[in-house]
Design a protein around this nucleic acid. Structure first.
Lengths: 210, 210
DNA sequence: GTGCAGGGTAACCAAATAGTCAAACCGAAA
DNA sequence: TTTCGGTTTGACTATTTGGTTACCCTGCAC
C-alpha cells in the first residue's frame, strides 16, 4: 500500500470516528505510521484531505444505492431483493460509512450536495422513468397489481428498514436489549426477513410472482 | 429564561450542529449572549456542559420511545399508531435530536450506554412482558392472528421507517429529488402512510380491528 | 563518486481555543 | 448608605493544533 493510500485509510478512520472538527492531523499521521509533515506533503491541508475521504465515501454509498433505484433491467421483485442485498453487504463491510455520511451531509455545505447531485446524474441516469423503482411502483398501483401506496413513501420506508439498524446500531441495540454479538447475529438474519416485509407492504400475496 | 437555561439551549444548538469536537465554547457564549467566562462559572468545563446537554437529549428521545414500546395499556393496533404519532411529533419538533444522539451514542463511551440502560429500566419497567410490543407480536404470531414475523426484526423495521427519514434527511432528500419544502411536505403526509405500511407487514387484513 | 529529485522528518511558528482570575457589578438585606 | 453574596466580565495564560521550513536520506542517472 502506498503512503498516499495509507493516509486515506487512516484519515477515514479518524474522520469517521471523530468528525471533521474532532479529528486530529497528528492522530491521522500516527495511524498511518508517518510524520505529520508528510500529510501536508500529500494533501495540502485538513480540509482537502477531508474532502478526498468524504468524496470517496459518498461514491461508495451513493453509486450502488442509486444504481439499484434506477437500473432499468430489474423487475420490481428483483429490485427489492437486490436493494436489500446490496445495502446489507455494503454496511456489513463498512459499518461506519452510513452514519459518517449522514453526519457530514447534515452539516450540508451546498458544495457537498452538488457533488451528490452530479454523482446521481452521472451514474443513475435513466431516461425510461417507468423502469425505475418509483416508476414501477406507480404503474403497479395504477393497474392494481400492487396495494395502493405512495411510491416515495414506500421507497423511504425501504431505505429506513435497510439502513437504520446500521446507522443507529447502538440505539437499536439498547432498545432491543441485545449485546454486540447478538446484534451482529440479528443483522445477519435480517436480510431474509427484510425481503418478506418489504414485499408485504405492497404485494397482494406473500409469494413471489417471478 | 435564566442564564443557565440560555446556556443549555445555546450549547445544544452548537453541539448538535458541530459535534463535540467541532463545537466552540466561544460560539456557545455568543449564542447565549453572555461572556465566555460565565460558561465556566455554570458548567465547569466543555466536557461537563456536553454531558448535561446530551443527557437531557437522550432523555427527550428515549423516554417517550421506550414508553410506547412497553406501555402495557396499549393494544397492538394502538401501539403502532401511538409510536408513529409520538416519533413524528418529536422529530418535527427537534429536527436534529436523533442524528445528534446517534452520533454520540456511536462514539459510545460505556458511560453513556449505562445512562441509557438506567433510563430504560426506570421508565420502561413492565413486568408483564406479554403486554409489551415484543410480547404482543410474539403472541399474535403464535396464535395466527398475525402473519409470521420475527418480533424484533419487525420492531427494528418500524423504528427505521419512522426515524430514518428524519435522521438521514439530506440523504433521502437527494435520493427522492426533493427540495426542502417538498420534503417537509413529504414528512407531514408520511404519518398516515406509515400506519398503513406498518399494519400491512403483520396484519392479515388492511382494515383495523379495534 | 557526484549530483539530483522525490520522499520523509524534526523543529518550529502562529493562530485558535479551553480554561483562569481578579476586579467590577448589582440587587437585596441590614 | 453600607455591606455582602452571587453573578458577570475583560484580560490573561497554557496548551493544542494546523501548517511551514530547512534539512536529511535514499535510490538512481551520469
Amino acid at each position: 500500500m502506498t503512503t498516499e493510500e495509507k493516509i486515506l485509510v487512516a484519515a477515514r478512520e479518524e474522520f469517521q470516528q471523530a468528525g471533521f472538527g474532532g479529528a486530529r492531523m497528528q492522530k491521522i499521521a500516527d495511524r498511518a505510521g508517518i510524520n505529520k509533515a508528510s500529510l501536508h506533503y500529500y494533501y495540502r491541508n485538513k480540509e482537502k484531505l477531508f474532502q478526498q475521504v468524504l468524496q470517496k465515501d459518498i461514491l461508495r454509498l451513493m453509486i450502488p444505492v442509486s444504481m439499484v433505484l434506477r437500473d432499468p433491467s430489474l423487475s420490481l421483485e428483483q429490485r427489492i431483493r437486490t436493494f436489500v442485498k446490496t445495502t446489507t453487504q455494503l454496511f456489513m463491510d463498512q459499518p461506519n460509512l452510513l452514519l459518517f455520511i449522514m453526519q457530514e451531509l447534515n452539516r450540508a455545505p451546498e458544495r457537498l450536495l452538488n457533488l451528490v447531485r452530479d454523482i446521481l446524474k452521472e451514474h443513475g441516469l435513466n431516461d425510461d422513468e417507468s423502469r425505475t423503482f418509483r416508476g414501477q411502483l406507480e404503474e403497479g398501483v395504477k393497474n392494481g397489481t400492487l396495494k395502493p401506496v405512495d411510491p416515495e413513501q414506500y421507497i423511504a420506508s425501504v431505505l429506513g428498514m435497510c439502513m437504520f439498524p446500521y446507522a443507529a446500531r447502538s440505539l437499536v441495540m439498547e432498545l432491543l436489549e441485545k449485546d454486540k454479538e447478538a446484534y451482529q447475529n440479528f443483522l445477519e438474519q435480517r436480510q431474509e426477513e427484510l425481503i418478506t416485509l418489504c414485499r408485504r407492504m405492497i404485494f397482494r400475496s406473500d409469494e413471489p410472482e417471478d
